[in-house]
């Protein structure tokens, strides 16, 4: 049950993030998680939002380069070593992680982590067998 992440190309210029997020705010789209990967030249803003399809359409209609990517969300116990344990399941299976980012949740005692891998189905299988909790879109937005 992968979830949809929206990625947006951002030039390194003042005001760009404000512009992009206001497009979503205007439409009452909720941002639950975000991550910015940056180089000296540009950045890629990655978002988990309440209505990804609508968000993507809105961003594109504003002339931005944006895309939708399926990523996995996992819930891990909010204790030392929680993330290490989950990620070990993937590395033991030889699955590389392109990027990952964590965010807070209303679910006390758990942290949620977004994971981007090459093959979602394979990773999902390994994680489930390894006892790692997978989260779906509905759970993220409670």
């Amino acid at each position: 049950m992968p979830i949809n992440q929206i990625s947006i190309f951002v030039e390194n210029k003042t005001g760009r993030l404000a512009h992009i997020t206001s497009i979503l705010a205007k439409r009452n789209i909720d941002i639950r998680a975000l991550c910015i990967a940056d180089t000296t030249d540009f950045g890629v803003l990655r978002l988990i939002v309440s209505r990804p399809e609508e968000a993507l359409k809105a961003l594109k209609s504003e002339g931005l380069a944006a895309s939708s990517t399926e990523v996995l969300a996992i819930g891990i116990p909010d204790v030392p070593g929680g993330f290490a344990q989950a990620i070990k399941v993937l590395s033991d299976a030889g699955i590389g992680v392109e990027y990952a980012y964590a965010f807070i949740t209303p679910d006390k005692g758990h942290a949620y982590v977004i994971i981007r891998v090459e093959d979602n189905a394979a990773a999902e299988k390994v994680l489930t067998e390894g006892g790692v909790m997978l989260i779906d879109q509905a759970q993220i937005f409670g």
Partner: peptide, 18 residues
């Protein structure tokens, strides 16, 4: 200008294009 065909959620891929 960045276009949909060049864009990726992966910085590494964008840098490869560059």
């Amino acid at each position: 200008e960045m276009s949909d065909s060049m864009f990726s959620d992966s910085v590494r891929r964008i840098e490869e294009t560059e």
